[in-house]
């Protein structure tokens, strides 16, 4: 796996071009990303996989405008994110990107409903009532809206976080190990919802995971190793992903 097709950056919802991220300097410098070029298609569910330290989280942080790359470019729907000011990146995150985290990250003092509409509140926008009602129904949150996070189970909290990510109709939803803190049944629910949002709402989803079962829900899997692209699986399933990971481990 030495060459790749050039990433279809112009059609991609979000793309990285020769992305390099170096932490520290001198002797102790670590190249977390070492020249990654990859595009993520619109209305597709892509999983980024790799072992711990492969750079998958760093890649996601750079793509989402949370972190700035050392060199290379990040394009969000044709917009250059590289070198933008914090103000612009903040605006991009608020208006064009949604997040789902492993540890849910809901605000404990707000109710479920307030947590869902928080990004729109920050942007000073009203939620689309139809979409909100649809999400609440699909995510099974109807009778949980008045509860605070401490009164919800892990699966319920993550579903609130999903609603929060989806309600603003972002161009890309980034999910960072969204099932990492959940049991298998709740995890399956969350993954189904993510996949359905791609199919029903045309949402673009990029998910970082190390779980082959979770990756099996995606349309495509991008493999990372030592900060470089190490594989690309179309229409993956649990078996093909597990095989690819085993190959990767054997080569290392």
């Amino acid at each position: 796996m030495t060459t790749h097709a050039p990433p279809e950056t112009s059609h991609a919802a979000v793309a990285a071009v020769d992305l390099v991220k170096v932490y520290g300097s001198g002797e102790t410098a670590v190249r977390a990303l070492d020249g990654v070029s990859v595009g993520f298609g619109r209305a597709a569910f892509t999983a980024i996989m790799g072992s711990s330290g492969s750079g998958k989280s760093t890649l996601m942080h750079c793509l989402a405008g949370l972190d700035t790359a050392t060199s290379g470019r990040v394009l969000l729907g044709g917009t250059e994110l590289t070198g933008q000011s914090d103000r612009t990146l903040t605006r991009v995150r608020r208006e064009r990107i949604g997040f789902v985290f492993q540890s849910f990250n809901l605000l404990p003092q707000l109710t479920a409903a307030q947590n869902v509409t928080l990004p729109l509140d920050l942007a000073g926008r009203q939620p689309d009532p139809e979409l909100l009602a649809h999400l609440v129904r699909v995510l099974g949150l109807t009778d949980r809206l008045g509860h605070r996070p401490s009164e919800l189970s892990g699966g319920q909290q993550q579903r609130v976080a999903l609603a929060r990510a989806l309600v603003a109709r972002p161009e890309v939803v980034f999910a960072d190990e969204p099932t990492g803190n959940l049991d298998s049944r709740s995890g399956a629910e969350v993954l189904t919802i993510l996949r359905d949002s791609v199919r029903d709402l045309g949402q673009t989803v990029v998910m970082v995971t190390h779980d082959p079962i979770a990756a099996g829900y995606a349309d495509r899997v991008v493999l990372l190793a030592d900060g470089r692209l190490a594989g690309d699986i179309d229409k993956p399933n649990q078996v093909s992903v597990t095989d690819a990971l085993r190959d990767l481990a054997a080569r290392a």
Partner: peptide
């Protein structure tokens, strides 16, 4: 600090 991080991630500006 975590809460601040979340707010910043989902689009609250520094000034905000």
């Amino acid at each position: 600090v975590r809460e601040s991080g979340l707010l910043r991630a989902i689009g609250l500006s520094r000034t905000g």
